[in-house]
């Protein structure tokens, strides 16, 4: 069995990296190796995980500098004997080892509005064409791994923006609500408010790292920015609104 050469962050802010050697087998992923480490050499190694199938988004970490899911990172992508650096997410406050405090996300979640749908026709159920929901279903794929939030330089390198900018995951959430085909109060004011959309400089790292392959920038953020332009910066629409009242 080959041996993995791990360098894992241990402890809180005053901690340090520790080196470990762990054997691994065919088809194993980084999370398997971390579990082995836990069961044999470091019983109190803190790591979050649930499904180990890329569906729950709990085991996010930075592996050789790349934010990704430990359960979806196969050991085969590394050279044998290569040093593998496993660090906690940088954008969040460190609790211990590989676990960070992501509770700020749940505060952000509260700020995004809830859907408010049109009632169905009397005696009928709600009708929506598949064509209408295709676009929005993409946003529902989000597993809330918060890797997009971790990689986003707006908050990663500038923590002071955390309050002004909800971040990519919540732009996806906003898009999900704002583009719902049956929402009866199109969320125009919310979109105009933007939740910090103007801080995004569309450098697309969120899209690059998304394990679900959601086109966060092209399908959520930019369309929201364009809707925001409709509300705030489009002179033709301003004239239209002045002449014909609120559209």
């Amino acid at each position: 069995m080959p041996t993995a050469n791990l360098k894992v962050w241990r402890g809180d802010d005053s901690g340090d990296y520790q080196n470990y050697q762990v054997e691994y087998g065919h088809g194993e992923v980084v999370l398997d190796v971390i579990h082995k480490l836990q069961a044999t050499q470091a019983g109190d190694l803190a790591v979050r995980w649930n499904c180990k199938a890329g569906k729950c988004g709990s085991c996010s970490a930075e592996i050789n500098g790349h934010p990704r899911l430990q359960c979806m990172t196969r050991m085969e992508i590394f050279e044998e004997g290569e040093e593998i650096v496993i660090a906690p997410l940088k954008t969040y406050k460190l609790i211990r080892d590989l676990v960070t405090d992501v509770s700020v996300n749940f505060e952000k979640a509260k700020t995004i509005p809830f859907v408010d749908l049109e009632k169905p026709a009397p005696g009928d159920v709600r009708r929506m064409a598949q064509m209408d929901i295709d676009r929005v279903q993409e946003f529902h794929k989000c597993i809330e791994c918060f890797i997009c939030m971790d990689v986003c330089h707006v908050i990663r390198d500038h923590p002071d923006n955390m309050d002004k900018f909800v971040g990519p995951r919540y732009f996806v959430q906003l898009a999900m609500v704002a583009m719902h085909p049956l929402d009866q109060h199109p969320k125009r004011e919310m979109v105009a408010y933007g939740f910090g959309l103007e801080y995004c400089n569309i450098t697309k790292c969120c899209t690059e790292v998304c394990p679900e392959g959601i086109h966060i920038t092209d399908n959520a953020i930019i369309p929201l920015k364009e809707r925001r332009v409709d509300e705030l910066y489009d002179p033709l629409r301003m004239i239209g609104r002045a002449l014909f009242g609120k559209k």
């Binding site: 809830f114 859907v115 749908l117 159920v125 709600r126 009708r127 929506m128 064409a129 598949q130 929901i133 929005v136 279903q137 529902h140 999900m176 609500v177 719902h180």
Partner: peptide
Amino acid sequence: VYELEEWGALFDRTPDGRI
């Protein structure tokens, strides 16, 4: 099921727009 839909769930659709 309809309650989840009311709260925003987007189930796959039949050609006539039902679940």
